[in-house]
């Protein structure tokens, strides 16, 4: 475990308790990725007393996290979380965490027909017809104990992450993705709570890692644009307590689409810019990660800027003791996985 606190004090107020039905957008660029921040969101929500010697963070057994990742696999997240002292596998067993795999089979082209679009019953083995890809030999043994044996139809709650699959086109395809994600959310909500009321108490933090990939890799040819993606996200938001989304905001992806650009923007650039700026307007908080403008430095990984999104409301300000303010800080990832966050010149 890193020697210092996992949650840098400067960041704590911003990531520990997103307000209800809020959207937090983390924008990153090629050289400054936001995975470490995503992990800290998970940590702030799930880490319990042994990990967290701090009473200032409201801790609730009913807080759960669903992580949907389109660009990174389970091995990555599990490995990196372990570096923070967070055992995602165990949390998954305890139904506090669920991972939805949007990487391994999203665009996989197989000869067999795509799973039927009707919601699969929890007990059916349909999504299991392919082996869970994480069981690649040679790597860490998969959580094979969690997987119900192939073909059996025991309605297991922990039947592991079901890989998302993009099938069809346009909103139909997005609806399919939404359904799969919501199934994971519902499953997480229903475990450990006996009745409807208790389920309502469960607050699920949904983290969607790089949904803009879906937009970029489909585009108008498949009938998906920025507005469809926006609606898709809105549909997901309705079912969870709060949402964190990471998007890419590299210069070519955002600024090529501006009217001042020298050349005609491609549909990809237009859609990405519209989606990212649109989300920022809908967000309560925008956390922007970027490289240091003055070039790389040995002790700075990047710049982190926290600003109010378009949907910011004064009532969101829950931390009377530490007034919420927009700020820009530098951060530095250490080899041990810890992160140091500091102001300029400190």
């Amino acid at each position: 475990m890193p020697s210092q606190a996992v949650l840098p004090p400067l960041l704590k107020p911003y990531i520990s308790s997103p307000s209800p039905s809020s959207l937090t957008v983390i924008s990153s660029v090629l050289g400054a990725t936001g995975n470490w921040l995503v992990l800290r969101f998970i940590y702030a929500t799930l880490a319990t007393a042994p990990y967290l010697h701090d009473a200032s963070i409201p801790r609730n057994e009913k807080r759960k996290v669903v992580l949907v990742s389109f660009l990174r696999g389970w091995d990555f997240w599990r490995g990196e979380a372990k570096r923070l002292g967070l055992d995602l596998t165990r949390l998954q067993d305890k139904s506090q965490f669920a991972f939805v795999d949007g990487l391994s089979e999203l665009f996989s082209v197989s000869t067999r027909p795509a799973p039927s679009p009707t919601p699969v019953l929890p007990g059916s083995a349909a999504p299991r017809t392919t082996l869970p890809v994480r069981s690649a030999p040679g790597v860490v043994p998969p959580r094979s104990g969690l997987h119900p044996a192939l073909g059996t139809s025991t309605a297991s709650i922990n039947d592991g992450p079901t890989p998302l699959r993009f099938s069809g086109r346009g909103t139909t395809a997005l609806d399919g993705l939404e359904r799969d994600i919501l199934r994971a959310v519902d499953r997480l909500k229903s475990t450990g709570s006996k009745d409807q009321e208790e389920q309502e108490e469960v607050s699920v933090l949904l983290i969607v890692d790089q949904p803009d990939l879906v937009l970029a890799a489909t585009g108008p040819a498949l009938g998906i644009g920025a507005s469809e993606m926006g609606e898709w996200l809105l549909g997901l938001q309705q079912h969870v307590h709060s949402t964190v989304m990471t998007v890419s905001a590299d210069t070519p992806l955002i600024h090529n689409a501006s009217t001042f650009a020298s050349q005609q923007p491609s549909p990809l650039e237009t859609a990405q810019a519209a989606f990212v700026t649109g989300s920022a307007h809908r967000a309560e908080t925008v956390i922007q990660l970027r490289n240091l403008e003055t070039g790389a430095a040995k002790d700075v990984s990047g710049v982190l800027r926290i600003s109010k999104g378009g949907a910011w409301e004064e009532s969101c300000d829950q931390h009377a003791d530490s007034p919420w303010e927009e700020r820009e800080v530098l951060y530095f990832m250490q080899r041990d996985g810890g992160v140091r966050v500091f102001g300029r010149g400190e």
């Binding site: 936001g34 990174r72 990196e80 990047g302 990832m333």
Partner: peptide, 11 residues
């Protein structure tokens, strides 16, 4: 960089 970048001498 997947981890967040930084700390490498070569960067």
């Amino acid at each position: 960089h997947e981890r967040g970048g930084g700390s490498d001498k070569n960067v």
